Amino acid sequence: MVASVPWAEPGSRFTRDFEAECAWLMTVANQKTVSGFLHVSWRTAGTVARRVAERVKASMPSPFDGLHAIGVDETSHR
């Protein structure tokens, strides 16, 4: 069982800062390069980046929240 600590997500082996760094590096380098730089497996680098992306996505409001109707102008369609 992994103990819950304030500097990591529940069930994660890494700190939030490490995960954020990994995710940022994945925006500027490929997964193989990031995994070598951070000394983690290729699969771990991808899993960490995916977990961070899901956390960020969950914290962002949807631009469609509260949308009740949408209008479409058929002449501007093309």
Rank of each mutant, 00 (worst) to 15 (best):
M1I: 13
A3Y: 09
S4N: 12
V5P: 03
W7H: 13
A8F: 03
A8R: 06
A8L: 01
P10F: 06
P10N: 06
G11D: 04
S12G: 03
S12A: 10
R13I: 07
F14D: 01
R16S: 05
R16L: 11
D17A: 08
F18G: 02
F18D: 01
F18E: 06
E19N: 14
E19F: 06
E21T: 10
E21D: 10
C22D: 02
C22G: 05
A23Q: 04
A23C: 08
W24M: 10
W24I: 05
L25F: 09
M26A: 08
M26H: 06
T27Y: 01
V28F: 06
V28C: 05
V28P: 01
N30G: 15
N30Q: 13
K32D: 11
T33H: 10
T33Y: 06
V34M: 02
V34L: 00
S41K: 04
R43D: 09
R43E: 11
T44I: 05
A45Q: 02
A45H: 02
G46I: 09
T47C: 09
V48N: 05
V48F: 09
V48A: 10
R50M: 03
R50A: 10
A53W: 06
V56T: 10
V56W: 12
S59T: 11
M60K: 14
M60E: 14
M60W: 12
P61M: 00
P61C: 01
S62A: 00
P63E: 04
P63F: 04
P63N: 05
D65Y: 10
G66N: 00
G66E: 00
L67R: 08
H68F: 11
A69M: 11
I70S: 14
G71M: 13
G71E: 14
D73K: 12
D73S: 12
D73I: 07
D73T: 03
S76K: 15
S76H: 15
S76N: 15
H77G: 14
